[in-house]
């Protein structure tokens, strides 16, 4: 592994010089040219075909950015990205319906054995509780969270908010985010049957940003100014807190393949681990594993 990386680093160095030369050439010619991005992406030039990715929805922004870069370099490659949730990702890659199945939780031993999965963890993430920015509730204890999600506490005034009903939002069984949240925050407690269902991390964020009295949980990487993070037992779900291990509802982001990856699939996963790839990971709000 380290050998591969060092090899790549040397390639990158070499390519950097070429890039500088290229940029200079472009400047001199006074045209931006084709915007060639040299570097870790070079290896994709002689690939073609369809790479199918499905599963974890927290992963999607990173996947999209990487896919865009690859398809820009080489239009012969088609990379398709679907959601569905971690369970779907694991199942579909196991059945051979996609080449990469993403999951926001570690595949279980049973799943790894059954499908001969290889997992690649390329980022660290957390699952944060979010509310509408207008909601003044910014701190909840674990006991309160358990009671809110089970439906026992059904009014914001019971936790220091306005006298309004609480609208709980949750994800379906296939969601890795739900799995992690359910295990680490709710201690596997029940989720109220009254809860609204949304299909992805993105959908959770936009649903909460539209509902002043909603509460939900979302990948920390997806939290932005349209929603307000809530401290869990006094710890805010921020990158730093997750990184330092203070925030306990954390998890890795995985890409799984059936057996050892090869060809385009391998190159895609390798790219995630390059400095460029990890920069994409960070710019999307996740914690680089480096």
């Amino acid at each position: 592994m380290s050998e591969r990386i060092s090899k790549r680093v040397s390639i990158i160095k070499m390519k950097k010089i070429t890039t500088v030369l290229l940029i200079m050439a472009c400047l001199i010619l006074g045209s931006a040219g084709e915007g060639v991005q040299a570097g870790a992406l070079d290896s994709f030039k002689d690939e073609k075909g369809v790479l199918k990715i499905a599963g974890g929805t927290a992963h999607i922004p990173v996947m999209q950015e990487v896919a865009k870069r690859i398809m820009e370099i080489n239009p012969e490659i088609q990379i398709t990205i679907a959601g569905g949730g971690s369970g779907v990702g694991i199942k579909q890659v196991g059945e051979g319906l996609v080449q990469i199945g993403n999951s926001g939780r570690k595949p279980t031993d049973e799943e790894i054995q059954k499908y001969n999965l290889k997992m690649f963890q390329w980022a660290l993430d957390g699952v944060g509780i979010i509310v509408h920015p207008d909601n003044k509730v910014r701190n909840l204890t674990k006991a309160q969270v358990i009671d809110i999600f089970s439906g026992k506490i059904d009014n914001w005034k019971l936790v220091g908010g306005p006298d309004k009903g609480i609208n709980v939002y949750t994800r379906d069984e296939a969601s890795g985010t739900r799995e992690v949240f359910w295990e680490k925050a709710l201690d596997k407690g029940a989720i109220s049957p009254k809860a609204n269902f949304v299909a992805s991390n993105g959908a959770m964020k936009s649903a909460i940003s539209k509902d002043p009295y909603g509460i939900g949980y979302v990948s920390v990487g997806h939290i932005d100014e349209t929603v307000a993070p809530v401290a869990f037992d006094g710890v805010l779900p921020t990158l730093d807190n997750v990184k330092q291990g203070k925030y306990t509802i954390s998890r890795g982001l995985y890409s799984n393949t059936k057996g050892e990856p090869s060809g385009l699939t391998k190159k895609f996963i390798d790219y995630l681990f390059t400095p460029e790839g990890q920069k994409i990971v960070e710019s999307n709000g996740f914690i680089s594993i480096k």
Partner: peptide
């Protein structure tokens, strides 16, 4: 529509 992608 919500469940079709679950574990077959």
């Amino acid at each position: 529509a919500l469940v079709f992608a679950a574990d077959y």
